[in-house]
Structures are given as structure tokens and as C-alpha cells.
Design a protein around this nucleic acid. Sequence first.
DNA 1: ACTATAATTTGACATAGGTCAAATGCATTG
DNA 2: CAATGCATTTGACCTATGTCAAATTATAGT
Lengths: 185, 185
Amino acid sequence: MSITNFLSTLVAFTPEELKDILSHFSKESIVKNQTLVHQGDVCKFLYFVEQGMGRSYYLNEHGKEITQWFFGVGKFMTSADSFFQQTPSLYYLEVLENTVVYSISKENIDLLFAKYHKMEKLGRLVTIEMLTKMTNKINAIQFQTARERYDYMLSEFPDIAYQVPLGHIASYLGMTQETLSRIRK
Amino acid sequence: MSITNFLSTLVAFTPEELKDILSHFSKESIVKNQTLVHQGDVCKFLYFVEQGMGRSYYLNEHGKEITQWFFGVGKFMTSADSFFQQTPSLYYLEVLENTVVYSISKENIDLLFAKYHKMEKLGRLVTIEMLTKMTNKINAIQFQTARERYDYMLSEFPDIAYQVPLGHIASYLGMTQETLSRIRK
DNA sequence: ACTATAATTTGACATAGGTCAAATGCATTG
DNA sequence: CAATGCATTTGACCTATGTCAAATTATAGT
């Protein structure tokens, strides 16, 4: 999924608008396991994942990594709160494979939001989609057994579920690695 | 918190804009326990709560009500997904007290989004705030003990925590009524 | 191919919170 | 001010999942 296709499917931009918008993004290749944002830093960029995948996570009181979200191909990856409010990030952001992204700074996206009403709309739509997915996660995790939670994982992240370390998935689903290992059989 | 104040604190509208925007809302009084949206219906309105409170909930596989969110004074209340995509709602929406709201239809809000770039921005900001709160809920619920979850409830909904039936709060927090009752002592 | 290191699986045991049922408390209505 | 119906609390017992530790398997570097 290229960023051009992605933008076009949500809002009808003219070719000139698209060109202008794209010129504010820059393409980057990021090597596996690189950390893009550290907990406590202000997240400076929003990333569109063209290839590869990433995750956000935080360290709990015992210093254990808790995966907060996975970002696959065709999604925007960022520490949303930190990026949009320019406040310290609660999360680390890292890529889990060699990954190709289009990045845009807060200044540039604000510029686009201000310049194009349609871009503001796109921002709203993308945020609502994320909100819906968050809500789904809560419903899956809050009242379901460990096995059902894993089924949710498979349906929400089919492309990711088999490619990342077990522990990342277990912490995302709110269970221990051991439990997930037993379920997987 | 009046809707005028609320709108003004997020985006700088001119008095004329505000007047026009407000003219698309209508004030309504809703009696305690009235259901605004049924599961399966398309949610037709977005409500700004001026007085009172409401909640969204769904029925799980055993027919038990699971509270999904509480909406207090100064918040927008709706079944977000259903309202914005005009799809069947996963949730019931009901008021828990006699409540005063300002309601706006999907057509009218779309009209305002299209007419005022600033309104689109407001929509984006409100959605991001909701996304942040959802994320907080996940973090609270996923890895914390029953007691810590209740502390989260008190901090997120201080005005609501003592005014609604125990069962509503327990299901919101992902625990049984009995457990919450034991904790509260 | 051979280590070293990390990831996963397995086992034995512990416990927070669930379930079910009964008892108590509280509020609303005639 | 009974009487009825909900909401909350309490008790006894149960189970899914956590914890900790060891064994096994996969991965990556030389």
C-alpha cells in the first residue's frame, strides 16, 4: 500500500494537491529493531508504514515491556498523544523489521491541516478509525478468555501475529508469555 | 460547562460563527434511564452533555450489560462509530439521570464540517482526546489489579463514580460486582 | 558447522478474582 | 409505615491464569 493510494482512498485530492502533500513527507529506510521514539521524548514525526512493521510499548513498574500497539503496512505509526500535543511520549516506538516509512513532522502536518480543509478531514477520519480499533481491543481484552484474546489478535493483525516474538504479543494481549505459548498449541 | 464555552476553549470561533454553529444544535431534556440509541440502530445524533450523565453499554453473550463508557458534564456523548459511519451501533446509549443535552444530527454536523475548516479541526481534536482516554483505559484495565482499576475510575470519572449503580462501574472496569463491593470497603 | 545467546515450551504450584447462593440494606409506592 | 422489589454485601468454594524455574529449541555470529 503506497501512501498515495492510501490518501486517495479516504479523500478526493486533486493531483496537484497530492503532489504538494507528498512533498512534505520524506521517505526513509529504517533498520530492524531501531527505536524511533523513546519514552519521555516528544515524538517529532508521524510515519506512514509502506513496508515492514513496528510497535509501541512502555515499561511497567517492574521494568517489563508492555506492547501497546502494532503498526503494519498501510498504517500511520506514531505516539499519537505525544505527536499531536507535543508532550513527552508515554511510549517507545520501534520497528520490528527493516521498514520503509514516509515521515512528516508536526510543523509540516499542521501546515497541511491549515492549508487543506480536506487534509484536516483526513486527519479526523484516520483518528476515528484508530479510536474504533482501540475500542475493539478493549472489548476483546476486558471480558474474554486468553484463547479468545488470541483469536482477536489473529483477526486484527493477521499479517503480524506470526512474525513477531511471542512476548510482544503476550504483553499486547495482557497475558504472560507462558500462557500464550500454551494456547498456541 | 455550556456548549458555547466548550467550543470556544478548543478553537477560536468568531461570534457569528458560534451563533451559526449553535443554531444547528437543539437543546433537549431527557428523563432518567431513557435510552437514546439501541444496539443495532444507527445512531442519529451527537449529544453534548450540559447537565446530568449517561453511559454506553452492550450485552455480552450471556445477556449481561457491559458498560463501555461514561459521559459526564461537558463531554460529547454518542456511539462514535455508528454516528460517524452511520452503521449499526454496537452499543446502547442511555442517560443515568435527568439530563440536558445539545443534540446535532449527522447531516448537520457534516454540514458544519464542510462549511467551517475550524469545525473540522475541532472534530479532530475531540476525537484525539477520546482516543487518549481510551488508551488510558486500556492501560489501566489490562495490567492492573482490581483495586488499581477502581483508582483509575475515581481519577477519570470523579463526578460519576459515586452516583451510578455499582454494577455499571464493575462491568466498566472488567470485574464482578462482588469484587468491586469488596474493594470499596 | 559450532557456540553463544535469545526465544519458547513445559512443569509444579500459588492466588486473585470468578461463581453461585444467601443475607442484608435501602428506597419507593400504596 | 408496611410491603415489595432492587442493590449491595457477605460467605464458601473453584478455576483460569500467574509465578518461578528448568529444559528445550531456534537464531545469529565466527
